[in-house]
Nucleic acid binder design. Sequence first.
DNA 1: TAGATTGTTAATCGATTAACAATC
DNA 2: TAGATTGTTAATCGATTAACAATC
Lengths: 210, 210
Amino acid sequence: MAYRSISPSVIRRLPRYYRFLEDLKAQGITRISSAELSKKMGLTASQIRQDLNCFGGFGQQGYGYNVQLLTGEIAKILGLDKPQKLIIIGMGNLGRTIATHIRFDNKGYELIGLFDQKESLIGQVVHNLPIRSMSSIDEFCKENSPTAAVLCIPKESAEAISYKLVKLGIKGFLNFSHYDLGLAYPGISVENVHFGDKLMVLSYKMHNDK
Amino acid sequence: MAYRSISPSVIRRLPRYYRFLEDLKAQGITRISSAELSKKMGLTASQIRQDLNCFGGFGQQGYGYNVQLLTGEIAKILGLDKPQKLIIIGMGNLGRTIATHIRFDNKGYELIGLFDQKESLIGQVVHNLPIRSMSSIDEFCKENSPTAAVLCIPKESAEAISYKLVKLGIKGFLNFSHYDLGLAYPGISVENVHFGDKLMVLSYKMHNDK
DNA sequence: TAGATTGTTAATCGATTAACAATC
DNA sequence: TAGATTGTTAATCGATTAACAATC
């Protein structure tokens, strides 16, 4: 159960494997070889076998991989079978979109709370959950013990609020603020999403042909 | 001018350098050494010097880097000084949020058009631009020659629409569809944004301590 | 000048690819 | 069994770090 010291490069590829395998499953495909999968995904077959073997021998010589079984294994590796209780902080445009646009239940989370500091938003219902005030968050966390948070707040408040959330028991952040979170908190996991960075990388690529 | 064969790892770090340098500039800091910057960014000083030297000697021995000058150089490297004309395809929740939430002008783009196929949205104004019908896109592209597109459309239509857009002259995509674009188009640049993948990686990290 | 810090080469480390024996 | 394809080791490639001479 203790999958340790797996390289970050491998981990970042896992969700993509998972998505492709879910697709295959939906198409009714029951087995696939590393060679076939590599073509679909634009990787080498060797890399796929290496990646999967970090976690165990999920395939069978002469046969390939059972799609259903492999999908399940990757789900387990990613922890999707043990949902984390999730809250969203900041219910402006972006927060609302995240709340309604993303399915959390099949990605390892259960969305249980929405928060904003803006008086006028409190009580509004988004995706079947009421928006709560930031002042009620201490009590909410004590009662419901969320472990993960999506941050859709301005750069300026990101540091202070994340610090508060860590004290309230949050262990993981998906950060949309234009701020690099998580350099300072050991034991806390962070994933930053920076649209802006992607746009700039795209700009670079476009100006430098592919 | 022809910065060639720079490694992807370096390119992906450039926007982050740019953000940190813009911050320093805003704080009125005029010079910084690789050692200081490395502390702020959580990198090694060596890596920073290596990265910057891919493009030229922007520093000065005994002094460090001039913040203003370096910021400008990175902007040029990223192509931010030569804006690409940008359109957004799909003006649902996500498309609207992107249109209003992101500043494109300081990231190498000029947002010039919004498109959706849904009749009821046509004509609505978002961020000072009218939403146009998908049937008018050929004409629009011929007249205005956009080169970049943000895709906020469902997985199912992503492939067909991106193919159409390539034929209309689009050279770069920022793709938000739950679909891996760009395996098939040589000469076309793509950046995929997959919130879901980030959430799953976060889940993995949380279950495996840091 | 003397001190500081870059630019750059060399050494290390990690990730990917190739190859093939094991085995279903 | 014979053919196919994995699991796994070894070879290559790329990226990061360390070290230091060049130089402002």
